[in-house]
Design a protein around this nucleic acid. Structure first.
Lengths: 134, 134
DNA sequence: TTAGTAAATGAAACAATGATGCAAATATAC
DNA sequence: GTATATTTGCATCATTGTTTCATTTACTAA
């Protein structure tokens, strides 16, 4: 339950947080702040901003880079916490329906970096037509 | 020469454009708008914004996604034009020197997407320690 | 070389996002 | 139930993205 997610992360259970979590569980893909604002019209902009920030910090959601200019967030499915995000899956942006989804089943491939570089994180942003639109 | 790059792209040769190109050729990595503003203090903010936009549209520069929140741009080395960007190389963000560079030599690996998805573009953002900092 | 014209600049103005400070409200622990 | 530490909601400010418009400038073609 959403309440438990908050408690497990050491965040207090409040109405704005539950509302935001509900929006995330209702939608599958990654959401921009504006997407959530459209759903929760009465939500204070700054509260939402800080809610997303704390969720991200605590590992409840992660940023989904998708090469649109908007920062998007998606629920973390794997074991993410304050220490580390395990979101090594690609994000897919559909140029037709403009939705961004997490390809959780896919593991981002190892990238052969030149000598001397140390990679700690890989983010893969895919663009194209999603299952439904293609 | 920078002038020729502009002409080849069908862009008029103007002072702001030459200045911006010079900044790009002087630096290796990807630059945020603010980076360029700091170098060219007299440059009008909107002119710079539009310059970057038109350079990006014409294939002179490309966006370098690096999971910081700032949009960064880097010179295109390969054959990019209005039709298509051929920037299928990863971008590497160094957590120590905070610079983003293009790993031109590296080809982004093929990502095994689920059935039904059509990928037209892959962006790989790496994070870690660069050659110099590691 | 000089118009004519299409493109580019620079300024104003507005929206969205990111970020901080502070007083009031409220979730939890006791 | 109350104390307190957290969270909210508001004000406020910075940055980026974007459009409109008058003025200036780069190229073209006579």
């Amino acid at each position: 339950m959403n309440e438990d997610m908050l408690k497990a992360s050491g965040l207090r259970v409040t109405s704005p947080r539950l509302q935001v979590l509900e929006v995330f569980t209702k939608h599958h893909g990654a959401l921009a702040q504006s997407d959530i604002e459209n759903e929760l019209v009465d939500m204070d902009r700054i509260t939402l901003y800080r809610t997303l920030k704390s969720f991200n910090d605590k590992g409840l959601i992660h940023k989904a880079i998708d090469d649109t200019d908007k920062t998007k967030y998606a629920l973390c499915h794997q074991d993410c916490d304050e220490e580390q995000h395990n979101d090594q899956h690609p994000h897919f942006y559909c140029i037709k329906c403009h939705r961004t989804e997490c390809l959780d089943e896919v593991t981002a491939p190892a990238v052969p970096v030149p000598e001397g570089y140390k990679v700690t994180e890989v983010q893969v942003a895919l663009k194209g037509l999603c299952k439904i639109c293609s």
